[in-house]
């Protein structure tokens, strides 16, 4: 079981606060153990990338962070997920969790509403009494979309291009002032130019937010992440794939001197 050993080496965590931490986290769908024994501490106001092959549980993991997995009937977990020390699964209202922890999805998924209403949705749903015009402008500026849409805020969000839609989704996610923004492969359906725009946007956002991003693209992780966690998967007896954390370290270390053989093989593209 040498290759299942977990290795986390994040020295910088000493200078920066931990936002989200997992302790002996096991995630199940029914009887199936999708992700096992994850221990990691995600630092504040950094970009943390989760990389690894399909089926290694990266997406499953970030959906534990905002309790989106609650929507799946068969989902349950043991171990702990904490947010600044508060257990997210003990005496906590999932709706409150999701207001503090925003999410951007793989497919751009604007609401079939105007650009304005997309951004205002969160404030309206949570009953915030803020100046909506100001909120919309601020959110769109921070997501680098304002200049492109300021004259057509009333048009449907679905009429934008894919890259614009994704930036709209980012604007929507940060409109409720979350501390953490989770991103589940936000660029995987976009062209290279839109991808670059979103990547530089994410770098900027990291000054104010903690970003946790799942990506298939190792170069993307290398370009923008401060920390990288490599997950791997192994086949179980019944042919499903069960994921586990191999190594979590500063991105540079993951790519230059990984502690684990599996990590080295994966980042060098020699992965089975």
């Amino acid at each position: 079981m040498e290759h299942t050993a977990q290795h986390t080496d994040v020295p910088a965590l000493r200078d920066t606060e931990t936002v989200i931490a997992t302790e002996q986290l096991n995630v199940y769908y029914g009887d199936f153990l999708a992700l096992r024994n994850v221990n990691m501490a995600i630092p504040e106001r950094k970009v943390t990338a989760l990389i690894g092959p399909s089926g290694c549980g990266k997406s499953t993991l970030i959906r534990c962070f905002n309790r989106l997995n609650d929507l799946i009937d068969s989902f349950h977990l043991d171990g702990r997920v904490t947010y600044y020390g508060q257990d997210l699964y003990q005496d906590v209202d999932a709706v409150q969790v999701r207001r503090r922890i925003g999410m951007v999805f793989q497919q751009p998924n604007p609401f079939p509403k105007s650009i304005y209403d997309n951004i205002a949705f969160g404030a309206r749903a949570t009953g915030l009494t803020t100046d909506l015009d100001e909120l919309v402008e601020r959110s769109l500026k921070r997501s680098a979309l304002w200049e492109e849409v300021k004259d057509k805020l009333k048009t449907n969000g679905l009429s934008l291009s894919g890259g614009q839609q994704q930036r709209l989704c980012i604007a929507r996610a940060i409109s409720t002032e979350p501390d953490v923004v989770l991103m589940d492969e936000p660029c995987s359906s976009l062209d290279p130019l839109s991808t670059l725009k979103i990547e530089s946007l994410i770098r900027e956002l990291a000054e104010e937010y903690t970003i946790i991003i799942v990506t298939h693209n190792m170069q993307q992780a290398a370009r923008m992440a401060d920390y990288t966690a490599f997950f791997n998967a192994e086949a179980t007896e019944d042919g499903k794939r069960s994921g586990y954390l191999v190594e979590f370290a500063p991105t540079r270390k993951i790519f230059d001197q990984p502690a684990q053989e599996a990590t080295r093989n994966y980042v060098n593209g020699q992965f089975g």
Partner: peptide
């Protein structure tokens, strides 16, 4: 109506 759109709303903290 795609489930991604529902997720987006739930993910925004809508009940």
């Amino acid at each position: 109506v795609p489930k991604q759109v529902r997720w987006a709303a739930i993910g925004m903290g809508a009940s």
